[in-house]
Every structure is written in C-alpha cells, then in structure tokens.
Amino acid sequence: MTRRDILSRIAAAAMAGPVGLEAAQHVHEEAAAATPAGGVYKPKGLTQHEFDTLRTLSEIIVPGASKGSAAEFIDLLASQNTDMLTIYTGGIAWLDEAMKRQYHSDFLGAKTEQRTEMLDKIAYRKNRTAELAPGITFFNWARRMTVDAYYTSAAGIKEVGYIGNRGMKEFKVPQEAIDYAVKRSPFA
C-alpha cells in the first residue's frame, strides 16, 4: 500500500464521516511499516570507515540511534550536499587524529573509556580551546542531527511519547492532565 492509497483511504473515510479510530490505527500501522527495512547499508557519501565511525558515535550520543537510522540519514544528506559532506569527513578525520595523538588509536579502535574521555571534552562549549574547537563544532552537528534522526523515526517518536497524527471524532483533553499541570502551577 502506498502513501497515496493511505491518503485516499483517509479522504474517503473522512468524506463518509469523521475518521474512525480504526481507520486512524490503520494509517498508523501502514505508516510504521513504511520505515526503511534492515539489511547491510552501503554508504552513499561517506567511506565505509567514516560511516562505521559515525554509526558508533551516533549510538553513543543517543543510545538506540541506529533504530532511527541516524548514520544512514546523515550519510544520505552528505551524499547530496558537499557542505554537509565536509562537516562529517572533516569532523571524523579530526576525531581520529585527536584520538591517535592521545591514545594511539583511531576512534573505532579505542577503548570505551578513551572514547568517553574524548567525548566528555568535545560535548561541551565550556571546554572550547583553539585545539578542541573543531571537535566541539563537529560534535554539535553530530548531536543535533543524530537527535533529529532518532526523534523523527518511529522508535524515537514512540519513546518521546508523541501520541497523535490520527483521526479523532471529538477533541478532548484528559482532566487528569489539566489537574496535574494546574496543581504544579502558580494557580494551584
């Protein structure tokens, strides 16, 4: 079933009356099934080494990021845009160089605690020095885009708790939610 078919169904259902929960659920499932399937991914813009490094890094930034195909998302955009490609090839090369200088191993080959030590430096603006600046800038990009990839995936949307994008016959707000917020507000 294509997206167009799904939309036609929504339109047909809507024309027949308010969209039923059944139809909404159907849309939800069809949409979920449309996520990219697994299998071995061949990088489109990055080299295999760069891609493997990025996948490992993104999984550290957001545990579960691979469920959101974060590295694939970034690789695709990098393959379409040289500005984006430069950010990642340059950033990953910087990271490997910095790791080699400190631990005599690139990022992928380093021990977990060595990776953590490096990331704890470049994950914060307060550590900005002339030496670390390129790493901090790169990590900002990787963090932002990994977060985007994960939280726009079915897994991330579910995890953050977005419940919507479905038909509703009547719009209601749970009284429990109102009570909770009012109680915690200055209007309690």
């Binding site: 167009r4 949409a31 449309a34 955009l77 845009n81 984006m84 885009m145 726009t152 079915a154």
Partner: peptide, 28 residues
Amino acid sequence: HPEKDFKEHMWPYQVPHRGSGDGGASYF
C-alpha cells in the same frame, strides 16, 4: 490535487530527508 499534493498525515520518516529538504537544506 489535494490527495496528491497535500502531505497530511505523513510521518517525517516517510521521507528520506525527514523534512530537512534535499541535502539537509534546512540545516543551512
């Protein structure tokens, strides 16, 4: 053509760029 043109109910993961545009245009 509303059925074809409107992106109503589409999830971000139904487009490879997730809504950032080709080449991640929105990042720039």
